[in-house]
Structure formats: C-alpha cells, structure tokens
C-alpha cells in the first residue's frame, strides 16, 4: 500500500519508464527528410526571378529619362561638351500633340490616381503575403 507522496512519485516514475516510448515506423526519419528535400527543391524551382533584370531596368530608366529630358528641354542648349553631337534631327521629329486633345475631368483624374495607389498598395501587400507563406 502506497502512503507517502514520495512512494507514489517513485511508483509513477517506474510506471512511466516501464511504459517506455512509442516507436514510429522504421521509415519515419527518411519520410521526414524526403519531405524536407522535396520542399527545398520545390522552393528552389519556384524561386521568384524578376521578369526584368536590374540592368534592363537601368536601360529602361535611362531611355525614359532621355525622352523626358528631350521633351522638356528640347529648346534648351546642350552643354558645350556635347557640342560635337549633332542633335538637329530631333527638331525634325513632328511634335507630339495627341494628348493635348484629350481632357480628363478632375474627378476622373483623382479616381485614377487613387485607384493606382490602391493597386500598387495591394501588389506590395500580396507580394509580402506570398513571400511570408513561402518562407514561413
């Protein structure tokens, strides 16, 4: 008959040690590691590569900036150091006036700006969400 808490404590220890641990299947470790390898491989294969590389972006920005610069400063004189470049052909390009005929109301402009902001915001949020899901 067990009376003291110490006896019960020792008894419980014996019982639990006697019960031992349960053994999973022999393939358990392999199954876990296979799942991890598979996950790593999938993660590598689905790693997101930007459609436009940094170099391409640089070139695009450069071209875009040049065009903008040309449109804005067509009349301004180029610095002396660029005198050797013949830019007269630019002046032969007919001026672009297609946008001057289009008028947008203030409401439309405002809605368009707000909509664009929301789209960009959602893109950032969704991208972060999927990134987090992917990496845990």
């Amino acid at each position: 008959m067990m009376k003291t808490d110490k006896e019960i404590d020792e008894f419980a220890k014996y019982i639990v040690k006697e019960a031992s641990v349960e053994k999973p299947s022999e393939e358990f470790v392999n199954k876990v590691m296979d799942a991890i390898y598979l996950e790593n491989t999938t993660a590598l294969n689905t790693s997101f590569k930007p459609l436009i590389s940094n170099t391409s972006w640089f070139v695009i920005v450069l071209i875009f900036a040049s065009v903008i610069g040309y449109l804005l400063n067509i009349e301004t004189k180029l610095p002396a150091m660029f005198n050797f470049i013949d830019v007269s052909f630019f002046k032969n390009i007919p001026s672009i006036e297609i946008f001057s005929k289009i008028h947008f109301s203030n409401t439309f402009t405002l809605s368009f700006i707000v909509f664009s902001i929301f789209v960009i915001f959602q893109l950032i949020v969704i991208k972060n969400y999927f990134n987090k899901q992917h990496h845990f």
Partner: peptide, 17 residues
C-alpha cells in the same frame, strides 16, 4: 540539411509518443 536528420533521429520517439 542532412544535419537535421540527427535531430529527427534524436527526438522522433518522444515526439511520436
């Protein structure tokens, strides 16, 4: 990644239990 297998081997009995 293989190093993780040692941890799995070490604790799989108790986790399963």
């Amino acid at each position: 990644v293989n190093a993780y297998a040692f941890l799995v081997k070490r604790y799989n009995y108790m986790v399963f239990t």
